[in-house]
Amino acid sequence: MMSTPTPGNHTPSRWDEITATDPAHSTRYVERFRTMAAAGQDIVGEARLVDAMLGRGGRVLDAGCGPGRLGGHLHEAGHAVVGVDGDPVLIAAAEEDHPGPTWLVGDLATLDLPARAIPADFDVIVCAGNVMTFLAPSTRETVLARFARHLAPAGRAVIGFGAGRGYEFPQFLADAEAGGLTVDLLLSTWDLRPFSDDSDFLVAVLSRT
Rank of each mutant, 00 (worst) to 15 (best):
A163P: 01
H150K: 09
F161E: 10
A120E: 06
A154R: 10
I118G: 00
F172Q: 01
E168W: 08
A163R: 08
T133C: 11
A120D: 06
S138F: 04
A145D: 10
R165G: 14
F147I: 15
L173W: 02
S138E: 11
A178G: 12
R165H: 13
G166L: 12
I125C: 03
E177Q: 11
S138L: 05
L151H: 07
A136I: 07
V124R: 09
A154M: 03
F161S: 12
A145C: 04
A152K: 03
A174N: 09
Y167C: 03
L173E: 10
P170F: 11
G155V: 03
F122Y: 01
Q171N: 11
R140S: 10
V124W: 02
L144S: 12
V143T: 14
S138T: 13
T133W: 08
E168F: 08
I159S: 08
G160T: 11
F122S: 07
E141H: 00
E177K: 05
H150P: 03
F172Y: 10
V143P: 08
G166A: 10
G129R: 10
E141C: 13
E177N: 01
R149H: 15
P153W: 03
R149P: 06
L173R: 13
V126T: 13
G164P: 08
F147H: 10
R140H: 09
V126W: 07
A120S: 15
Q171S: 15
F147T: 12
F169W: 07
E168V: 12
P137L: 03
A174P: 05
G162L: 11
H150W: 09
V126H: 11
R156D: 00
C127S: 14
A178I: 05
F172A: 04
E177Y: 01
V143Q: 01
V126C: 14
I118K: 03
A148D: 07
A157R: 07
A176N: 00
L151M: 05
A148H: 02
F169D: 05
